[in-house]
């Protein structure tokens, strides 16, 4: 697992991909930080976190599109799948590599807190809570992207496909509010990633949300392993 992690992580910096993603992350979060905090003189950066949902929805697929599709195309999967490692550790290695890049991006968020603390008193708890929430959200996007990239050999299709799923996740929230109140709405809103994430940005960090996010990540990683497994039997 560690060998794959190391290779994939390094690959992000031998191509422009890692730099581009981090640049986009920093640019947008910096822009939102300026708009929602600095320019209005507020120390509440929850809106920055909420806005990052849209940015990540679009750009995390760039990070993950290559992970498994390129292996299939270049036939390097013949190396990884015939090496004495389990499928899970291949998938985890790839996931953690993309996730590490994502986490490097997220690491800038507390920095904004420090910037603000030089001007005013900052309440750190929501910032840390939001950061954890963003890390969980990123985990979902990365695991979805990884899953979609296992389905195709084409990077572009992988990127567009995972963007599409991310979009569905967002639209599911809109759909929920369009439904009449009742059982269906309760179900949909409780599995809506967006509404759970916005809860966190509003300062409600519940155990059920934590379990929900981790479960979704787990499900997509599991599905990815199954796709690789299935390919052998095809």
């Amino acid at each position: 697992m560690f060998a794959i992690f190391k290779r994939e992580f390094r690959a992000y910096f031998t191509s422009p991909l890692g730099y581009v993603f981090l640049a986009i992350f920093y640019a947008f979060s910096g822009l939102f930080f300026y708009i929602f905090a600095l320019s209005v003189g507020s120390t509440d950066i929850s809106s920055v976190f909420l806005m990052m949902f849209m940015v990540l929805m679009v750009f995390v697929p760039l990070l993950t599109m290559r992970l498994l599709s390129e292996d299939k195309k270049q036939k390097t999967d013949q190396l990884t799948l015939t090496a004495p490692v389990s499928l899970l550790s291949i998938v985890m290695g790839k996931f953690l590599a993309a996730y590490a890049i994502f986490a490097i991006g997220v690491a800038v968020m507390p920095v904004y807190g420090f910037v603000m603390s030089t001007f005013a008193k900052v309440s750190w708890l929501p910032i840390w809570g939001n950061t954890v929430g963003l890390l969980l959200l990123g985990g979902i996007f990365v695991s979805i992207g990884l899953f979609v990239s296992s389905l195709t050999e084409n990077q572009m299709i992988a990127a567009i496909g995972s963007f599409f799923i991310n979009l569905m996740i967002l639209l599911m929230n809109t759909l929920t509010s369009a439904l009449p109140t009742g059982f269906l709405q309760d179900v949909l809103s409780s599995i809506s990633v967006y509404s759970r994430y916005s809860q966190i940005t509003n300062g409600i960090f519940s155990l059920s949300s934590l379990i929900f996010f981790v479960s979704v990540i787990f499900i997509f990683l599991f599905l990815t392993v199954r796709v690789l497994e299935k390919r052998r039997w095809a």
Binding site: A3, R7, R10, Q74, D77, Q78, L79, V85
Partner: peptide, 23 residues
């Protein structure tokens, strides 16, 4: 395999070290 499973973006030594770790 028929088509050598090479990661084209790595140097030969990096690649062999990766395989070493993988195995």
């Amino acid at each position: 395999p028929e088509q050598p499973p090479l990661y084209l973006d790595m140097t030969v030594m990096e690649y062999l070290k990766f395989v070493y770790g993988l195995k």
